[in-house]
Amino acid sequence: MEVSKATIQKAVAKNIISEQQGSALYHFLKEESRHTPSFTFTHILYYLGGLIAIGAMTLFMNLGWEQFGGAGIIFISMLYAGVGLKLANSFARKRLIIPAGICATFVVCLTPLAIYGAQQWLGLWPDDNAVYRQFHHRIEWLWLYMELGTLITGIGVAWRYKYPFLVMPIAVTLWYISMDAVMLIIDQDDMWNSHTWEFRAQVSMYFGIFMTFLAFWVDIRVRTTADYAFWLYFFGVLAFWGGLTSQHSDSELSKFFYFCINLAMIGIGALLIRKVFVVLGAIGGCLYLGHLASNVFKDSWLFPIALTAIGLGVVFLGIWWQKNEVKITRKARNIMPKPLQELLDKKLG
């Protein structure tokens, strides 16, 4: 729960704490929040500026850079990386943690461009029709060298600086690898036929499961520090859910099983306090209900009534849960492993 100045003033008004203690507590929490990402105008400016700079060297890169040649691209990448590291170190000394993390992340995001330039310079680039600007929207096996280099660089920089935002390029790179590595196995001329699409969806799903478990392991290991698992959860669950949803089946039982998995995701998200599970699980549940309305019960006037009853039942379930949440949560936590108890205690306060 976010503690605001108004909340502290209410505690002072009820004589829970003194006015002096309330003032001291507010200033302490305000100072602590400077290092925690939040929806404040200052942090919005931090991330907006950082993402513009990162996007300039990644998503929005144009063909103009190709005229510099491989050696020129390496030189400019190294120059940008030097500036990024200098800024990261300067911000770190001033205890500006979020800008320092953004600048360090910018350096990691330059890695694929530098590797691309090195391959061009050394004559090792395998496809003259592929250029760097296609890296983020075209699935090809030839990006793997750039991705593996980025992964190594990202882990090294994250180990050195230990900023949670540095996990973002690592998670994105792992997601890219899961898509591009498949191209080494399948026939690229048949990449869009139904069997190949099914195989790619399954790879995405299983890789997403692996990445989600990795996120959970990280969450447990660093439960007493910053949130290093956020981006791993985000892209892991996205890869799993995307692969699961992309699979085709004519079996109503399989579709119902898909619905149950999405409900389980909502439960897991509520347990771990991770919104990505809940949001994607809710979307998946709505897709299944849409399928029932459009195909299975399209001529039934009872279906909307039954669905309304189910919806109201869920509302009443929420009321019952609110009344019994403390008792149920306490009993559930007592049978959980101690590291998981500590993780939930930190998230729930």
Rank of each mutant, 00 (worst) to 15 (best):
M1H: 11
E2Y: 14
E2G: 09
E2N: 13
E2M: 12
K5C: 07
Q9C: 12
S18F: 02
E19A: 15
E19P: 15
L25P: 00
E31Y: 01
T40I: 02
L48Q: 03
A56R: 06
M57L: 13
L63T: 04
G64N: 08
G64T: 04
Q67V: 11
G69K: 14
I76E: 02
M78D: 13
L87P: 02
N89G: 05
K94L: 04
I98T: 02
G101H: 02
I102C: 02
I102A: 00
A104L: 13
A114R: 00
Q120D: 10
W121H: 11
D127E: 15
N129Y: 08
V131C: 07
R133K: 12
I139D: 01
I139A: 00
W141F: 15
L144T: 14
M146F: 03
E147L: 07
G149R: 00
G149Q: 00
L151Y: 10
I152P: 02
I155W: 06
G156E: 03
V157L: 15
A158N: 09
Y161M: 10
V167T: 08
M168S: 09
I170V: 12
A171K: 05
L174I: 04
Y176N: 04
I177V: 13
D180E: 10
D189H: 12
M191S: 08
N193P: 02
D219Y: 12
I220E: 13
R221K: 14
V222P: 00
Y228P: 03
F234V: 00
D250E: 08
Y258Q: 10
I261E: 01
N262M: 13
I266Q: 06
L271W: 09
L272S: 01
R274E: 13
V278S: 05
V278I: 15
G281F: 00
G290Y: 11
D299N: 11
S300Q: 06
S300H: 10
A309K: 09
G311P: 05
V315F: 15
W320E: 12
W321M: 10
K323Q: 14
E325T: 05
T329W: 08
T329D: 14
L344T: 01
